[in-house]
Amino acid sequence: MRLRRSAVGWSFALPFAALFAVFLVGPVLASLAMSFTDIRSADVRSPLAVTFLGFDNYVRLFQDEQFVKAAGNTLVVVLLGLPLTVVLGMAAALGLNSGLVRFRAIFRVGYYLPVVTSIVAISVVWRFLLQPDTGLLNSVLGLVGIEGPNWLANTSTALPAVIMMIVWRGIGFQMVIFLAGLQAIPGELYEAARIDGASRWAQFWHVTVPSLRPTLLFVTVIGSIGLLQVFEEPFVMTRGGPLGSTTTVAYSVYSQFSFGNYGYASAMSYVLFLAVVLLSILWFRLLRSDEVG
C-alpha cells in the first residue's frame, strides 16, 4: 500500500525529478566540489590535476576585504530594499484593492511594467535619468531647491541610487502578490467585522493584516532571496563602482567567474547560499503560520 502510494506520487514527480537531478543537482554538486579546489578556467580541460584545498577558499573569503565590503553592501541592499519594496508594494495593492479606484488594469499593468523589462535595456534609461546636471531626477530635485549629486559617481550615493532602481523594479511584483493575497480574503470576514462595528482601521488591523501573513512570509522570503542575490542592477549601472561601493556578493561571484577563478567563485556562491538559507529560516520562524510551509 505504501509502495503503491509512493509509485503514484513519483509518477507525478518523476519528469521533474529526472530533469532536476541531471541539469540542476548535478551542476550544483560539481560546483560545490569545485569550491574545495583551486580550479581555474585554465584547468577545465584537465580537472583531475587541480589541488584539493579543503576549506582554504572559504577561509580566504573572510580575509578578502573586497568580499567583506561586498557582504556589507549586500546587507544594506536587503535592509533598505526589502522594507521599501514590501511597504510600497503593499500600499499600492491596498490602494488598488480599496474599491475606490477606477481603471485598475491600467495601474496594474503600469506598476508591473518595470518587472517585465529586460534590465539591460532599461538601465540605459536609468543612467540618463541619474545624470547630475541634465538628468530628470536632479531637475525634479532642483525644483524644490535641492542640488542633486552625481549619483552614480559618488561613493556615498551610488548604492542608494542602485537601491532606488531595485525598488522601482521590485514594487510591481510585490504589489501583484499582495493584490492576490487581498483578493483571497473571504468577504465574510469583513462582513462580520462590520457587523461588530469595526472601523476601517480596525478591519485593516484585525482582518487584513492577519490574513496577509502567509503572503507577507512569501514576499519576504522571495524578496530576501532576490535581494541577497542582486547582481544585474550593479552590473549594468555601475560595474560595482565607484571604489567598490556598489559591489554585491553576487557581483563578486560573477567577477571571480569572469576572472576564471572557478574554485574561489564557487566558494563565494556557497557562502551566499548559506546566508540565504539562514535568512529564510529566520523569516519562517518569525512569520510562520499554518497555511504556508
Binding site: 548535478g26 554538486l29 560539481a30 560546483s31 560545490l32 566540489a33 569545485m34 574545495f36 579546489t37 577545465v44 580541460r45 584537465s46 580537472p47 583531475l48 590535476a49 587541480v50 584539493f52 579543503g54
Partner: peptide, 28 residues
C-alpha cells in the same frame, strides 16, 4: 575535518569526471 574530507574528495572526482567529458583527452 577528516569526516568531511572523504565525501568532498569523492564529489571532486565525480565532478572532475563530469567536467572532463568522461575521459576526453585531458592531458593536452
Amino acid at each position: 575535518m577528516r569526516t568531511w574530507a572523504r565525501p568532498t574528495a569523492v564529489l571532486a572526482v565525480v565532478a572532475a569526471v563530469a567536467l572532463s567529458g568522461c575521459g576526453r583527452d585531458s592531458g593536452d
